[in-house]
Amino acid sequence: MDIKSLVPGHTKANLAKTDKSKKKSASDGISSASAESEDSVNITGKASQISQLIQQMKSAPIIDQNRVSPIKEKLDNDKYEIEYQRVANKMLDFESNYQGY
Rank of each mutant, 00 (worst) to 15 (best):
S69C: 03
K23S: 09
S27M: 04
A16W: 04
K17T: 11
S51H: 08
S27C: 02
S40M: 05
S21Y: 03
Y84Q: 15
S27A: 07
S51Y: 09
Q55W: 01
E36F: 11
Q52C: 00
H10K: 13
Y84P: 02
L6M: 10
S25D: 07
I30N: 10
Q52F: 01
E95G: 05
Q85N: 08
K12I: 11
L75D: 03
V7D: 10
K46G: 00
T18F: 07
V87N: 08
F94A: 15
G9D: 10
K4G: 13
Y101Q: 12
S31N: 05
S31E: 07
S5K: 11
K58D: 09
M1S: 07
A60E: 12
E36M: 07
R86P: 06
T11W: 06
K20P: 00
K58I: 13
G9I: 07
L53Q: 13
A33F: 14
K20A: 15
M1T: 05
G29I: 05
S32A: 13
Y80V: 01
I30S: 10
K22F: 03
I82N: 10
Q55P: 01
K46T: 00
S48F: 01
I43F: 02
N14T: 15
Q52T: 07
S34H: 03
G45W: 02
N14S: 15
S32P: 14
D39M: 11
Q56P: 00
S48G: 00
M57N: 10
H10T: 06
A88P: 00
I71Q: 03
A13F: 06
K90N: 11
K46M: 05
M1D: 02
D39C: 13
K17R: 15
Q56E: 13
I54E: 02
S69V: 08
I82Q: 10
I82M: 14
Q65N: 11
H10D: 12
I63W: 02
S96D: 13
S59R: 08
P70E: 12
K17G: 05
R67G: 07
K17N: 09
H10E: 14
A47Q: 02
K22G: 02
M91H: 07
L53D: 13
G100K: 03
A16T: 09
D19T: 12
